[in-house]
């Protein structure tokens, strides 16, 4: 299991469009990917759960990946969030 803590820096947080970008990117990995936020474990491959989690600009989250390709999965997830989830 690998994980990293980071802060969400795109203005919309995990709203519809950024969350879609994220889910589409991480779904190709076999590992289970979870976002820990506000005491909840959110399935990072589920758009609906991500939206319901209401992760906003400035939220502190932890991304956790567990599985055969966990290193690559975590790296891409973190890179995406740090780059602002495709927001212009």
């Amino acid at each position: 299991m690998v994980s990293k803590q980071l802060t969400v820096t795109n203005s919309q947080g995990f709203h519809m469009r950024p969350a879609t970008v994220f889910v589409n990117a991480v779904s190709k990995y076999k590992s289970n990917i979870t976002i820990k936020f506000n005491g909840n474990d959110v399935n990072a491959k589920s758009l609906m759960n991500l939206i319901a989690a209401c992760i906003k600009f400035g939220s502190n989250i932890e991304v956790v990946a567990e599985g055969e390709d966990e290193e690559a999965a975590l790296a891409e997830a973190v890179q995406l969030i740090e780059a602002g989830l495709g927001e212009e």
Binding site: M16, R17, T20, V23, S27, N43, K45, S46, L47, M48, N49
Partner: peptide
């Protein structure tokens, strides 16, 4: 149109 396209993404959620 993005709003509507979002509906496809939502219903395709594998977890759901």
């Amino acid at each position: 149109a993005e709003i509507i396209k979002g509906h496809i993404q939502m219903i395709s959620d594998p977890f759901m």
